[in-house]
Design a protein around this nucleic acid. Structure first.
Lengths: 198, 198
DNA sequence: AAGCAATGAATGAACGCTCATTCATTTTCG
DNA sequence: CGAAAATGAATGAGCGTTCATTCATTGCTT
């Protein structure tokens, strides 16, 4: 096993991130102690600082990794040549199912995303931008395909769509996940497409 | 002037809340020191504790007062006998104009509302519930009036509408308020009504 | 009216506790 | 053995909260 070099490091790095995700999701960033993350990850407090600059750096890295791989997943499933209305359905479906699969991630994105450290906020919007952009691209394509209204304000509409999905996820979390999130896809997409169609 | 008794107290209470609103909006709850609020309000640190149980109590009181008067304003403008589509327009208009008027309130509701102390969260949803309920009522009325689709899921749709408006406000804040929020009402309502109409 | 007493609002220095971070020491592993 | 990784006790800054003290106002007494 010659692999256990930089790989071991990567493993521990991810173990700490995973632990942090859980702790942040359960207690929120400001109520999460570094020592708690260390315990959850099964490492010593000091070890954290061999992998991360400071506590905030943990959260920022978390967002970069997690949102990055989410966005990648979206790009895998939504293709240039899809019909725009089918793409909208796919986006909503992925949005709901992926967050339903990873509750901790859902909690952190929904509840902590809006925190207010300057640095943090810009990092988060940076990580989120490609997703919002993806929605916009689909809207533009839909207009070109003649499926969506020509008078759509795509910059505004992408917000309406993202915000609506976001709120459904938030509400589902707050309810204690007492119903299926992915079961809301059809009715949600239906509402969107009525608002979009030419 | 026999008034200057309990009135003086009320005035100071409100001065502290106003100061807290500003400080929370600028720095976020966890980065706002009680001493900073005291300085902003022009009182001593200890004085705060003559009016509030603790720091969290300040935030909770803030929400109660501010959201309470907002909800009251909605009820003043949206009446039982309005056409439901007109009511939706009125709601969106008020949502945007009221938050555009009070940026500090907008910031606190958008950015702090999602914090994670259990007690806080339940307090906030309690204060917000009448508003969400109002939207639902209008949806139900719209169906009864034959204006909205009979197959609407009102519980889901109220979230879609609230979330969409919420995101538009968030985005406007993050952009540094570089455009008019109330100018988005028409296009936003247009999108909603297409999704709602029978 | 004038002095005295009582009140309680306001103050802000001090307290005590909570953590993020450090670093001297130990363990691991090639 | 030696270097790198990991440890976790120790540190100290930050901050919410307390409380002994001040002082303007009001009420009471003669």
């Amino acid at each position: 096993m010659t692999s256990g070099l930089a790989e071991k490091r990567r493993e521990k790095y991810e173990a700490i991130l995973q632990a942090a995700l859980k702790v942040f999701a359960e207690h929120g960033f400001f109520n999460s102690q570094v020592s708690k993350i260390a315990r959850e990850a099964g490492v010593a407090d000091g070890t954290i600082y061999l992998y991360f600059k400071n506590k905030e750096d943990i959260l920022i890295s978390l967002f970069r990794e997690k949102l990055g791989s989410l966005v990648r997943k979206f790009h895998e499933h939504v293709h240039e040549d899809d019909r725009a209305d089918e793409a909208i359905r796919k986006i909503c479906e992925l949005h709901f199912t992926e967050l339903e699969k990873d509750v901790h991630l859902a909690k952190v994105t929904q509840l902590e995303l809006r925190q207010s450290s300057r640095e943090l906020h810009s990092e988060i919007s940076k990580a989120l931008k490609p997703y919002i952009q993806l929605i916009e691209d689909v809207l533009v394509r839909g207009i070109e395909q003649g499926i969506f209204r020509r008078d759509l304000d795509v910059k505004l509409t992408r917000l309406l769509i993202f915000g609506a999905m976001d709120e459904v996820v938030s509400s589902w979390l707050i309810s204690g996940r007492r119903y299926s999130l992915s079961a809301q896809v059809d009715k949600t997409v239906d509402f969107f497409l009525r608002g979009l169609r030419a």
